[in-house]
């Protein structure tokens, strides 16, 4: 990714900042300037909204292909995370073996290196997800 675009998007990538429509209350991530439900009524009114970083695995896939930049991380887990605030977020799950991931697994957002532009370029930081160990233990105790 080119430096200016990453720089513009850093706020929402660092802190999971999306937008919320004041008309209907829907939260969007990545942020939107207009609410698709409310259209013109929401124009210029969308508010910044920070997600809690909590969520559950909605679906996931294990990638074995040698995608550029992932050679040292494969196999890696890409997932869609369902958040309590509403938006579904795509992100990588780390710090867990692929066979231990399951639909509904509680996760939380963490701050990690996302990509780096070779050995001399900038390092891009942002969110990934890790298992929410405390919530998983509570679930175990409950069953």
């Amino acid at each position: 990714m080119v430096v200016p675009r990453f720089w513009r998007e850093r706020r929402y990538r660092y802190n999971l900042i999306g937008t919320r429509c004041p008309e209907c209350g829907t939260v969007y991530f990545p942020p939107r300037n207009v609410c698709p439900k409310c259209g013109r009524k929401s124009l210029g009114k969308m508010e910044e909204f920070q997600l809690s970083g909590e969520g559950k695995v909605y679906s996931y896939t294990i990638v074995h292909q040698n995608v550029l930049g992932f050679k040292y991380q494969k196999p890696y887990i890409m997932a869609i995370i369902e958040t309590p605030e509403g938006p579904k977020i795509t992100g990588q799950i780390v710090d867990v073996e692929p066979e231990k991931v399951y639909i509904g697994m509680p996760v939380k957002a963490v701050f990690r290196r996302i990509a780096e532009d070779g050995k001399a370029g900038i390092i891009q930081y942002g969110y990934k997800f890790v298992p929410d160990w405390n919530k998983m233990e509570l679930e175990k105790e409950g069953t």
Partner: peptide, 11 residues
Amino acid sequence: GYDEDAATIAV
């Protein structure tokens, strides 16, 4: 981890 450094640990 592969994607951790002194800055991510600090955050």
